[in-house]
């Protein structure tokens, strides 16, 4: 089979994912030449650990973006749920019960976002921007802007334990949740309907799809994913930090968009988001190893995101 017909036979989604994988490989080759330390297991695991937060939050954003909406509140939600988790443990709850409660709180935050967007008919951008500010304020207010320490030894294992002494648990969560998210999105009725709603909300409504239900689903999922990230972060720093994860919504959106999720709704994949998050993680890690300052790292990330959005725009102009 010739190369061109091979390309023709791949679906657009596959083509997109291939592009992202190639970009990731190129980055990795460049950094492994630039720094001998880059490919060492320890460093790769650090990348995995750093990527997991962006990636897990990114799963939620992938759902929301495919549904044609956006959730800007996830960064604040990470901090808020982390603080809540710490407070619950301080109040004497067992770590496992505290984790379950925290996940529920994340779901509740998502539910409230969805109510603002559906029942109150607010534009998603504005509604979740409000939630971003409100949740951050709440996290700071209830802690008086001070960290809430967690001195239960078991809790820190959640994020700090390494499987076989090598793989950090958050990397495992990232992969397991990725499988779950991908299954929900591609194999279930509700996941498939997310695409329909994102592509054309009115057509979906007139086909008898409950748009309300779909939006509740994507926002609750996004809130729960943010709370998972909140718990992981709290476990890593063994405290609830009200000022943590500021701007993480941008990373999560960037991961999804780099991975081919459309800001206009209707298109996207979980595997794409994983690679998108890896590109961001590798980029920051590699630049770090090359002793490039945090400020320039941020600049580089921004350029990558702009480039990814531009690619998305090109795709839409070709009508793909």
């Amino acid at each position: 089979m010739s190369r061109s017909s091979l390309l023709k036979n791949m679906s657009n989604n596959t083509k997109q994912t291939m592009t992202v994988v190639i970009a990731l490989l190129v980055l990795m080759v460049v950094f492994s030449i630039a720094s001998p330390y880059f490919l060492q297991t320890n460093n790769l695991m650090t990348i995995g650990l750093q990527t997991s937060i962006t990636c897990i939050t990114g799963y939620g954003l992938t759902f929301v973006l495919i549904a044609g909406a956006v959730d800007l509140s996830v960064g604040s939600c990470i901090a808020f749920t982390g603080v809540m988790c710490a407070l619950l443990i301080q109040a004497g709850l067992s770590p496992s019960l505290a984790v379950v409660m925290t996940l529920l709180i994340g779901g509740l935050v998502g539910f409230l976002n969805a109510v603002m967007v559906t029942k109150m008919r607010m534009p998603p951008f504005i509604a979740t921007l409000g939630a971003l500010m409100a949740l951050r304020g709440l996290a700071l207010a209830i802690t008086e802007a001070k960290p809430v320490f967690i001195d239960v030894p078991n809790f820190k294992l959640l994020a700090q334990y390494r499987l076989f002494g090598v793989i950090p648990l958050p990397v495992i969560y990232m992969l397991a949740l990725g499988l779950l998210a991908s299954f929900l999105l591609r194999k279930t009725v509700i996941g498939r309907n997310v695409f329909a709603v994102g592509s054309n909300e009115e057509a979906a409504r007139l086909s008898g799809i409950s748009v309300f239900k779909i939006q509740i689903f994507v926002y609750v999922f996004s809130g729960v994913m943010a709370s998972v990230a909140g718990i992981i972060l709290a476990s890593r720093v063994t405290s609830g930090q009200p000022a943590i994860a500021s701007g993480y919504e941008a990373n999560a959106i960037a991961a999804a968009v780099i991975g081919g999720t459309s800001m206009r709704g209707g298109h996207g994949s979980i595997i794409g988001t994983i690679f998108g998050a890896l590109i961001l993680g590798v980029l920051m890690n590699g630049l770090n190893l090359m002793n490039i300052s945090q400020n320039w790292q941020m600049f580089a990330t921004g350029i990558v995101v702009i480039f990814a959005v531009y690619i998305d725009k090109l795709r839409s102009m070709q009508g793909v």
Binding site: R192, F195, A196, S199, N200, E202, A203
Partner: peptide, 13 residues
């Protein structure tokens, strides 16, 4: 196009 089809999705969807 406006109210019936999800134009950028597939025939089967």
């Amino acid at each position: 196009k406006k109210d019936g089809l999800m134009l950028d999705l597939e025939v089967d969807t």
